[in-house]
Simulated assay, not measured.
Amino acid sequence: MRAIDVRHQGREKVICCWEVDGVLIDPGPGVSEQTLLEALDGERPRALLLTHIHFDHAGVSGALVRRWPDLSVYVHERGAPHLVDPSRLMASAGRLYGGDEGLRELWGEMVPIPEENLRVLSGGETGVEGAFRVEYTPGHASHHVCYFHEPSRWAFVGDVGGARIPPHAFTVAPTPPPDIDVEAWKRSVAVVRGWDPVALGLTHFGEAPPEQLDRVLEALDAQVELEGSTDGEAGFVAAMDERLRAELGEDADTMIQATPLDQLHMGLARWRTKFA
């Protein structure tokens, strides 16, 4: 088992691809393909396990399938159609990143994946690639799943476990649009806790102790409170920026790259309008 830092935009500790017995969990964005390939050193992965299809977690998947045409890609049923045809996903994300040019500069190419390469999940599967249990864990995304590696008792939790920049324990709950659901997120944390994992594998970033589940719930509540008490996006961003710099010092910019502050606000504001 190892954590591969794909060094997004050349920065360390932003995006982590996990390799477990040749299986890659959340291989990262297309723009980091070369870094990932160098870390693999010519070895073909056995399969890709995606917690969800956001660019920072899954964007390189199609390029890896293009390189290894028989590569299996595991993804939740709600995300699978967008891997076969990523055009709607790219159009939606382009509105956040300044259009197609900005999207490609930040995240790289998202290559379509042939339907026959997909292994579609609904949650509740066991024995995936001989070792993983899967549960449906919405909240951050409506198509999010988490993977429990039963031999090691590690849980690979995508964004459900939040974002932290080691060695700091301070945690941010990534809440980008469009489908944040705070109550579903809390239920998903309870699902992961029910596995009684010995450690969590975070995409942002690295290994975390089980207490990380408490931290992400605290972060989620704190961000909900902040979004409801500040004056719009500008007030929220300023308050979060101040908080991050007080807690993380020079690592604040790394956290902001992993969890853009304006997107934290947009996702929570949309959630409040829809649910609260």
Score class of each variant (00 low, 15 high):
residue 4 I to H: 04
residue 6 V to H: 05
residue 6 V to N: 02
residue 9 Q to E: 14
residue 12 E to D: 12
residue 20 V to C: 07
residue 24 L to G: 01
residue 26 D to M: 11
residue 30 G to P: 06
residue 32 S to L: 01
residue 33 E to I: 11
residue 36 L to N: 03
residue 36 L to T: 07
residue 38 E to F: 06
residue 38 E to H: 09
residue 44 R to Q: 15
residue 51 T to Y: 05
residue 53 I to R: 03
residue 54 H to Y: 14
residue 59 G to Q: 00
residue 60 V to H: 01
residue 61 S to E: 06
residue 67 R to C: 11
residue 67 R to S: 10
residue 74 Y to Q: 02
residue 75 V to I: 11
residue 77 E to H: 10
residue 92 S to Y: 14
residue 93 A to N: 10
residue 96 L to M: 13
residue 98 G to F: 06
residue 101 E to F: 10
residue 105 E to F: 09
residue 112 P to G: 09
residue 113 I to S: 04
residue 119 R to H: 00
residue 122 S to G: 11
residue 126 T to Y: 03
residue 132 F to K: 02
residue 138 P to E: 04
residue 140 H to T: 12
residue 144 H to W: 05
residue 145 V to W: 05
residue 155 A to D: 00
residue 170 F to V: 00
residue 173 A to D: 13
residue 174 P to G: 12
residue 174 P to H: 14
residue 175 T to P: 08
residue 176 P to R: 01
residue 179 D to M: 07
residue 181 D to A: 15
residue 183 E to H: 07
residue 186 K to I: 10
residue 187 R to V: 08
residue 204 H to C: 09
residue 205 F to K: 01
residue 206 G to Q: 04
residue 208 A to Y: 00
residue 216 V to R: 07
residue 222 A to Q: 10
residue 223 Q to A: 09
residue 223 Q to E: 13
residue 224 V to C: 13
residue 231 D to G: 09
residue 231 D to L: 07
residue 235 G to T: 01
residue 244 L to H: 02
residue 251 D to T: 09
residue 257 Q to K: 09
residue 259 T to S: 13
residue 260 P to F: 02
residue 260 P to C: 04
residue 264 L to C: 14
residue 268 L to C: 04
residue 274 K to I: 11
